[in-house]
């Protein structure tokens, strides 16, 4: 188990989590956030993770991103040495866009960190700004934009950075329903041009089903993967609101989650 990955671990470019557990140190003892999470995501695959609030979804994402070290277990990327993981782009729910940079500088940030020359990174950033429909706002600051527009900036930044892995933490969580659908379609359009490995965390079951190739359903705290559901719809998807096929899957997942959500609520009162 030294630097090189085991041959059996999976496809080149995939993401593998093995028995990942995490505990937070609290003043009154430990808080178990994740318990034995196993998952495999193939390159180019879009995986949604749903679960009740507080189930450790964000913790899992940060561990995959390399921003946190799990208490136990292992995250690996077959084809990459353990100490040299592939680059990834995190998209946060809110506030992930730098308020002190213009839209153009925000989107070009990943390229700037990789020392891509100024002119080149601005060209590439401008291209993605146009793809998310913000071409008129390149020199605007985030506070001049709506929440939905700011999320577009965050997504454009992740795509332009040209990373093989995209990790999204409820990027559309704070948007109204209409804007959310528009941005979901935009995201799928961008992704269909450039099929990254996506791990998409959400508490919106319908969103998870609309976007994902697979939906991983997590249990309440400590979070573990309870079910791994393959979404059978063809791509590109033309899923209208309230499509019966979507609804059926959504209800199935809701049945799995219902008890955890209930017990989560009763714990709190």
């Amino acid at each position: 188990m030294s630097g090189t990955p085991p041959a059996t671990a999976g496809t080149q470019g995939a993401l593998v989590c093995e028995a990942v557990s995490h505990k937070y140190d609290k003043d009154d003892g430990e808080l178990a956030a994740l318990a034995d999470v196993d998952l495999q995501v193939q390159p180019g695959e879009f995986v949604s993770i749903v679960g009740p609030s507080g189930c450790g979804k964000t913790t899992l994402l940060k561990i995959i991103a390399g921003l946190m070290t799990p208490s136990s277990g292992n995250v690996s990327f077959p084809g990459h040495a353990q100490d040299d993981p592939p680059r990834n782009g995190l998209v946060f729910q809110e506030h992930g866009v730098f308020p002190w940079m213009t839209v153009l500088d925000n989107v070009a940030f990943g390229l700037e960190m990789r020392q891509v020359p100024r002119v080149e990174r601005q060209q590439r950033a401008a291209e993605f700004i146009e793809r998310v429909g913000l071409q008129e706002f390149g020199s605007s600051y985030p506070h001049q934009l709506s929440v939905g527009m700011r999320q577009r900036v965050g997504i454009a930044r992740a795509f332009v950075a040209d990373v093989p892995i995209l990790l999204m933490d409820e990027p559309f969580g704070s948007l109204d329903a209409q804007t959310k659908i528009v941005l979901q379609e935009e995201l799928l359009r961008l992704w269909s041009h450039d099929r990254k490995l996506v791990v998409y965390v959400t508490h919106d079951i319908e969103e998870a089903v609309r976007l994902g190739d697979r939906v991983l359903v997590m249990s309440g705290r400590p979070g573990r993967i309870r079910e791994d559901i393959t979404v059978p719809f063809e791509r590109p998807r033309q899923l209208g609101r309230g499509d019966p096929a979507v609804s059926e899957l959504v209800w199935h997942i809701w049945d799995l989650l219902r008890d955890d959500v209930r017990s989560g609520l009763s714990l709190r009162d």
């Binding site: 921003l67 680059r87 995190l90 946060f92 940030f109 960190m113 950075a161």
Partner: peptide, 8 residues
């Protein structure tokens, strides 16, 4: 975290 994530 964002900056670290992009390898600043």
């Amino acid at each position: 975290q964002v900056a670290e994530n992009y390898g600043a």
